[in-house]
Structures are given as structure tokens and as C-alpha cells.
Design a protein around this nucleic acid. Structure first.
Lengths: 256, 256
DNA sequence: CGTATCCTTGATGCCTCTCAAGACGGGTGG
DNA sequence: CCACCCGTCTTGAGAGGCATCAAGGATACG
């Protein structure tokens, strides 16, 4: 799914009469990414009609599940979501965490059903872009497809980084990568980048990073002993983000 | 990156059809996938002009490298290729093996440079679809973008499977997955599915699967002892492909 | 036919998983 | 307001799977 945080560039659209990228629909609902790069003298006010529903999900509630018929692309307004896939024998792999402003479900667009599941990590507000409307939109807005490709491309790049992490990095590097990445994405969305409030459990983090829950705890403890971070349960403060970045990139492990 | 430029006047070419397109241009150059959803009763002879070059690469020769300016998408006519990404400290993660009929470089399309490197595993013939021509084509052929999205979507799904493999599976499951997957892809391209001629080294396989070269050897030996496969160097015959499939899915490990 | 590369096998050690138990915190109900 | 409960987090001990180091054998190629 889309763990992509695009640096956004607003596109001026047409005359003053039609609002730039129809902020009501875009910024408010996180469709922002979809609008970017659309450009042209197009009247985009119809974007307002895009959003079918703006539902709120409680912690643990599924937004979509594996095998379900594809019905919409989702944009997170607030809260956070985890996506995961399954092995045939029931094992779970968390494939991503998604915060407000990010999209989900894009890569199920061409299939007719979801190939992963998405579940709210906390009380989460989600906008739904129905499939049919999406098709309309694609016909009417040249450049939209292009933008979809851009977003998917970024997701592929992110997946490649994850493959590298899962295949080559050690536990400390993995956790450092996780923290740094999350921090960057928060910054992208104009949120404090060094004061993280994790919405996922240690177990989820471990699953995502290919580690056991206990290993995550131990590494966190080690980071704390080295004053790289300060934690209290799910509140994490990055004290030496630069050092974490080094570690995430395979720099020397922390001294014992 | 792709200049979004002026709103495009779409030229409707034939009706939308799901049947494979003009075999002349497509199959010959491996652009097959690109044409797939384009439509049947169309004159696609202009596709012939797409291909700028049809170069041959020798074993180990790079087709494109990280950081290089993006210039084209590549389709493999014959031979095979490995793609990989790098950590900052020089570690390598092989992200995929590609056989004839498959595309590469797609996910670098929106960036202006390649974010991974591709290298021929053996003497390999590759068609190059230049960037500029690609843009032309997109303008002229509705449904092509759609097809690009489809292909990228498939790649995302494959990456998710890889994340699951790297994060959750044990050595035997990984290798079984690898063999089964390769077999399926060969079958997909109408090649013998149970008589594999690996073009990559044990070391490459191990890197791809997040294992040491030696572990790959040991697992291969174990599979052979159990008569699941027969091998001679890089020639592998799948004797019990169904059993391998079970193992790849987390079925009981082979008996000791 | 020599050399380089790849493959294979063995021995050893370590990183991480697993199992286990306890601590902590938030929520609930009396 | 307190006691209780349950999920989550933390820490320890032990085991195991796989990496690493090392060396020999097979194959391809010039």
C-alpha cells in the first residue's frame, strides 16, 4: 500500500473562480496527492463530488480485507492505519503503516479485489473515493493517471527499501530506519518530527520489521541506554536523530 | 520526470478490447505487456518505430545503473537480468530476476533517474523504449497508461510477497518459493516449467532471498536428498513441484 | 592446462527467536 | 477513589537457525 509521502507542490488551476485544486475536497480529505500535477485550465470543482463518505473507524476495525471486491481508494484524514498480507498458513506480514494524508488501496485498483487488508490503529477518519467516480475522473482529467503512476512508483521504491531492510539489515538498523522514516513522514505533513506518538504496538512494529516483539523492546531499551531516544510507552523522542540515521544506514552499531 | 504539459487530445484507436494486440510488434520485442490492453482491431504497426535499439549485453554488463538519468524502459527479448539496490555502506540487495518478456525500469519512469541497477546475467537481448517515444505513445494510445498501472500494480503485489518471504519465511520456504515462482513464470512464457536452467549464481539467489550463499547450497542439497528436485550445477529439475509449493506456503518442513 | 569462478561441505559462533514470568498502565466497576 | 483486570511492555534464560570462516572440489574459459 502507499507508505509514500510525496512532497507536495500545489498546482495553480485556471481562474480565480475555480478554487485551486478544490481545497475542500483535496486538502481536507487527503486527496491532495491525486490533484497534484493535474494542472491546466480545467474546472475541478467536480472533485467535490468525489468523496462518497468520510467514515470514522475505531481501533482494530478493518477498512478493507483480503479478497473483498475492490470498491474504492482510501485517503486518511486523521489517525493511522496498518496494512498487511497473509501467508497461506495464517502468518501475517505487516506491509506498511499509514498516517494522515496518505493513500491506500491504489494497487488493488486494477484487480477487482483487495490483495491486502487495512485496519485502523486508532480512531481514524478516512475518505473513500469510489471506484466508479475514479473512472470518471480519469477520463476527465488528463494527467491524473500520470499522477497515479507517480504514486505507485514511489511505493515501489519504498518496497525496495523494505526488501533491503528485511534482507540485509540487523535489528538495530531496522529499528533506526523505522524511526527515521516515520519522523520524516511526519515532518512532511508538518507535524513535529522528533516527538513521535506511536499508534502501533511493539508487536506490530516487530512484525513489520521482521523481528520478534521482544527484540523490538530490547533494541528500544538499548537505544535509550545510549541516549539516542527517550521513551515512555508509545511516546518516543528522538534525541540524536542524526545518529539514528547513521545507524539506519549501516553505520557502526552502538557501543556496548 | 514526465512533463505533464498540455492537456492531450486523445486519439481513439479502435475499441477497448482485452485481447492481446498486434503480435507483430509486440511479441517480437517483448513489448507484449505494454500492448496487452490496447485493443485488437488496431493498426499498431507504428509500435515498430518505438524501439530505438535492440542491443545485446554480455554477462555482467550493466543495462542501467543507480543515479543514471532515466532514458528508457527496457523489455527483455532473450536472456535474463538481475536488478538490485544498494545500502549507503555498500551492501547490495538483489530485488528481482527478470526473464524474457518482462519489463524493467518502469518504476524509474516518474523520477528522472534510475533508482536501481540492472545487469545481464547471461548474454541478453534487450529492447529499449526511449523516453520521448514513450510519451508520444501515451498520447496516442488510450489505455496504455492503464496498462502501465496494471503492470506496476503487479510489481507491488510481488514486492509484498517478497516482504512476507523476507520477514517471515524460513530458509527452506524461501528457496521453495523461489523455485516455484520461477517455474510459474517460465510456464507463463511458454517455456518448460519443470526444467530450470538458472542463470544466476547461488550467491545471487542467496542475496535475493536474504540468505547466505552457503545456506542456499545446503537447502538445495537437502531438497535433493528428499528427491524434491534434481540438480546439476545450475540445471534444476523439479521432481515434486506440488510438494515444493506446500513447503513454500509454510507446510511442514522436510523430514530429517 | 592453468586459472578463476562457482559450488559444496564442515565447524563454530552469534544474533535473534522462543518460552516464560513479571511489571506497568489504562480502563472498568464497585 | 480504590481494587481489579487485561492488554501491552519489559526483561531473562535457553535454544536454534543461519551466518561466518575455512577449505576442498567441480566446471568453465582463455
Amino acid at each position: 500500500m502507499l507508505a509514500v509521502s510525496t512532497p507536495l507542490k500545489r498546482v495553480k488551476i485556471g481562474k480565480a473562480s475555480s478554487q485551486p485544486c478544490a481545497p475542500i475536497a483535496c486538502t481536507e480529505c487527503g486527496i491532495y496527492n491525486l490533484c497534484f500535477a493535474v494542472g491546466g485550465d480545467t474546472d475541478l470543482s467536480f472533485l467535490n463530488t468525489l468523496v462518497k463518505s468520510r467514515r470514522t473507524y475505531k481501533r482494530g476495525e478493518p477498512i478493507f480485507s483480503v479478497g473483498e471486491p475492490f470498491r474504492a481508494v482510501f485517503a486518511i484524514r486523521s489517525g493511522s492505519v496498518k496494512t498487511s498480507v497473509l501467508t497461506d498458513d495464517g502468518r501475517v506480514q505487516v506491509t506498511g503503516f499509514h498516517i494522515s494524508g496518505e493513500l491506500m488501496g491504489l494497487n488493488s485498483l486494477v484487480a477487482n479485489r483487495y490483495n491486502s487488508e487495512a485496519r485502523a490503529l486508532e480512531t481514524t477518519s478516512v475518505c473513500e473515493v469510489p471506484f466508479e467516480r475514479y473512472e470518471e475522473l480519469v477520463e476527465q482529467v488528463p494527467g491524473l493517471q500520470q499522477q497515479m503512476i507517480r504514486i505507485m512508483s514511489q511505493e515501489i521504491n519504498h518496497h525496495q527499501e523494505m526488501m533491503l531492510l528485511l534482507g540485509k539489515k540487523r535489528a538495530e538498523e531496522r529499528l533506526a530506519s523505522f524511526l527515521v522514516n516515520l519522523s520524516l513522514r511526519l515532518k512532511h505533513h508538518s507535524q513535529p518530527a522528533e516527538e513521535l506518538k506511536l499508534s502501533m504496538s511493539r508487536s506490530d512494529i516487530g512484525n513489520y520489521l521482521g523481528l520478534a516483539e521482544e527484540t523490538v523492546c530490547r533494541v528500544i531499551t538499548r537505544f535509550e541506554e545510549e541516549s539516542l531516544i527517550a521513551t515512555q510507552r508509545r511516546n518516543v523522542r528522538l534525541i540524536q536523530p542524526d545518529r539514528l540515521l547513521e545507524i539506519s544506514r549501516g553505520g557502526p552499531a552502538i557501543a556496548k
